[in-house]
Design a protein around this nucleic acid. Structure first.
Lengths: 264, 264
DNA sequence: GGTTGACCTTGACGTAGCGTCAGGGTCGCA
DNA sequence: TGCGACCCTGACGCTACGTCAAGGTCAACC
């Protein structure tokens, strides 16, 4: 006859685990010896091994009791179900792991590799770290909303960087973020560039500025992300309104144009 | 500005989760509007996405805070650690799943396929289901103790089945289990066969009857498993002692032989 | 025969990451 | 003016045990 410790050691579980199984009625309480110690026979070892095997496979303890008493058909069905759960769980972990391996550097935090490439590109162009942090946060929002289209979007953004005016825009904003002045003339230059680019795109018939669907929330979020990062973002929006464009990360043509604008 | 429900929907977590992250200080409490509702900006969305990504990857919430503030080096180290954990977890689940797929039939409950084959073999020889259940339990003990040697052991047991006397022994025991009689003469015949086989093996120089190591516990367990299954097992042990053999699943030569034995 | 250390007993609280009421107040719309 | 869908705090529940606490027991050693 075994003590609880010997039983636990033999079946490679903890003593607490055995007692827990008693508590929930999964393993029957054995008889006691003269001093009140539990004494186990071989049957308990077998029962505990069965329980342990199923529990280790992720079967909820609440199901194991029924499972061990089920007939072959029910058992097989339950096993299939458990296997499905396991497969799903493995898949979930596998994809999590994929995500995590992308987190090797701070830059790629929760961002797909494509976006990291884009950010690196900006960095090489001379965009400041401060600006890059803002970009990064923006891309986090974008990646969260359109995880499937992220490659397409990045490709498009990279192509846009061919235009030196856009690069200039980035560098201006980058510079402005470094200083504190509230009315730097370069803010106007930035607005000029943005409006100019928007005008051209509009003329070329591109109407879906900035995004592939109709949900305005992501764009509002991107806008307010900029606002939270720097108060001058709002000033820039005002300048853009003066030039006939509403919004910020997704520009909308103001029709009829209201320049000068009525600021509320 | 978003309400907590909108934030949760956008980041694909539950409202309760957001509140939980506030509680443990992982996500800062935002400002409140006039009626006490929490109002979130875009920064909160970004922060929550970061948290969610790490949490989903299995990073403990208690580490996520530090992780998000760590520098690139610490971050990379932590990520490696997390990746290791994930890999281990996946491996564990994968092996669990392997185990579970073996559980397709009741027979194979927690038993490797080789053993199931052996049990099938016994069944075809005409061994009763009652007897098979006992065998099954015994093999569970054996598989638990020598998982690596199970193939070897099964192979050896299958080879032994070539001897018609052993088959006869199984069938006798099988028959005896079906009836209730306490002193069937076939019990003596069984003991005769067992002693005869043991004598031959002893003469041939096989000293490790029944098992590949010196730990007596598994054999004691196997013996008492038989005792628990049927009280006549003890009677059989007595008969074996009379024939010069001690034990049951692992026979030991009594030297000097003490026949007739002194029963206590 | 006393002491020590490893075991056993019950009981109860702690853990992680939320889910799920309960008992309220609020918003927006017909 | 209601109604349903939100929001608030507080608190208990869940899984599968881990981990004290406060005792009793066993075996060995001095």
């Amino acid at each position: 006859m075994l003590t609880i410790g010997q039983l636990a050691a033999y079946t490679d579980v903890t003593v607490r685990t055995v007692r827990h199984y008693h508590q929930i009625g999964l393993l029957p309480e054995p008889g006691r010896d003269a001093s009140g110690y539990r004494r186990y026979g071989a049957g308990a070892v077998v029962a505990l091994i069965k329980i342990r095997t199923l529990a280790h496979a992720g079967v909820p303890l609440s199901q194991i009791g029924r499972l061990l008493e089920a007939d072959e058909q029910d058992f097989a069905a339950a096993i299939r179900q458990i296997d499905d759960r396991l497969r799903g769980e493995i898949e979930r972990l596998r994809s999590s792991r994929e995500q995590v391996t992308r987190l090797a550097s701070g830059d790629s935090l929760v961002l797909p590799a494509e976006v990291v490439g884009y950010l690196d590109r900006l960095r090489k162009l001379g965009v400041s770290e401060r600006m890059l942090e803002g970009e990064r946060d923006g891309w986090i929002l974008i990646s969260a909303r359109w995880p499937d289209r992220i490659q397409e979007i990045v490709t498009w953004k990279i192509a846009e960087l061919e235009d030196p005016r856009l690069v200039r825009l980035y560098l201006i904003l980058s510079e402005l973020l470094k200083i504190d002045g509230d009315d730097d003339p370069r803010l106007e230059e930035a607005a000029d560039i943005m409006a100019e680019l928007a005008d051209e795109a509009y003329a070329a018939g591109h109407t879906d500025f900035g995004g592939p669907d109709d949900d305005p929330l992501p764009f509002d979020l991107l806008d307010s992300l900029a606002d939270e990062a720097d108060p001058r973002a709002e000033r820039l929006r005002v300048l853009l309104r003066e030039r006939g464009w509403n919004g910020w990360t997704r520009l909308e043509r103001l029709d009829p144009p209201d320049r000068p604008p009525n600021q509320p």
